[in-house]
Design a protein around this nucleic acid. Structure first.
Lengths: 183, 183
DNA sequence: TCCAAATGGTACTGATCGGTTCCGTCTTCA
DNA sequence: TGAAGACGGAACCGATCAGTACCATTTGGA
């Protein structure tokens, strides 16, 4: 067995969903591109929706692990999240935030996909709050909420401008917020 | 003729596209909900993509007209754009920014839909720059870019939190940016 | 009043959607 | 070596997709 079919399905689906959108990618495409048989697909996932949820959960963990790793490598300060984002924005395959995109194209807020996406943002917020607390900032929860607002604003801006400039601007705004916090 | 078929198609499609996503809404649905015949649809629009572009152009103008009207009514100061947004966020049918959503679910940056969406954001930026210049702020173009970043961040945050709180937070960040600009 | 244009309804196309079923093959481990 | 399970391929299902063709009706203007 080359690679496990399930793993190949998750990898292929993640790439395609992120690049073209969840609804735009049919099961057919995923099967063709992954080389997995139709029957095997439905042995691993009850439905396409199941696959979508699994893909998003997987990406949530990978994304947050990546962020923590990059922030740590860049110095471990809260503002480094924007430097990490700037790196993402320059990637050729950058297509915004997979979770924002999911919420944008998934109307049903009760669906599994929407839930996982919303949860991802909360977890990122929690991570940023920890980072802020760790660096001695007061009211880390409130600051973290604004950090994520700036991060999402930067991501959406980068998606339409296709340049990493937005990361720096958001960083500047965040820096002003932090300094005004403790003069 | 009750209402012109074309107008009914645009209205119905705009509602459905915004509420459920462009790809999620088929031509069938639009016809059923608008009461327009299939043939009439294709007499007015060469394809669904044509309708999508027309809907987005229409919404772009309506949205910017709405923003200008609200800002004017609220006092005409740049920060009022966030108060206007707060009003939008409380609407029961609020589902984020139609243009961000369009870019999120449209992978092809060359498509008409993506182009109209990206253009919309530029026009909003231009409007905000004018507002800033009108109120005597230096470097209005640069400030406007950051304003729109904050607006988009607030919209995305409001979409997932389903509360208008993000508008106030973005407003606070923008206010800090303006005051640090001229002390 | 009469005619041309606009309209709504229906039937149809070929393609694709998500999902089920069966079958022959390959891998893994005892 | 043998058996069990994982696998890929293909045929098939009903539903829906965007789009076309034809026809009867309604409308607005002359």
């Amino acid at each position: 067995m080359a690679t496990k079919a399930r793993e190949r399905l998750l990898e292929t689906a993640e790439e395609l969903f992120y690049a073209e959108g969840i609804r735009a990618v049919g099961v057919e495409r995923i099967l063709a591109e992954s080389g997995v048989g139709r029957a095997s697909f439905y042995r691993h996932f009850a439905s396409k929706d199941d696959l979508v949820v699994a893909v998003l959960q997987r990406r949530d963990e990978a994304w947050r692990a990546w962020l923590a790793e990059r922030v740590d490598a860049l110095g471990g300060e809260p503002l480094d999240v924007f430097n990490a984002l700037a790196e993402r924005f320059t990637r050729a395959d950058f297509r915004g935030c997979a979770f924002i995109n999911t919420m944008a194209e998934t109307a049903d807020t009760e669906s599994g996909a929407y839930r996982v996406a919303a949860e991802h943002k909360e977890r990122v917020t929690t991570y940023v709050a920890g980072l802020l607390a760790q660096n001695g900032h007061a009211a880390p929860d409130e600051l973290a909420r604004r950090f994520v607002l700036l991060m999402d604003g930067a991501i959406v801006t980068a998606l339409r401008e296709r340049t990493p400039a937005a990361a720096n601007e958001a960083c500047t705004l965040a820096a002003a917020m932090l300094t005004s916090d403790r003069p």
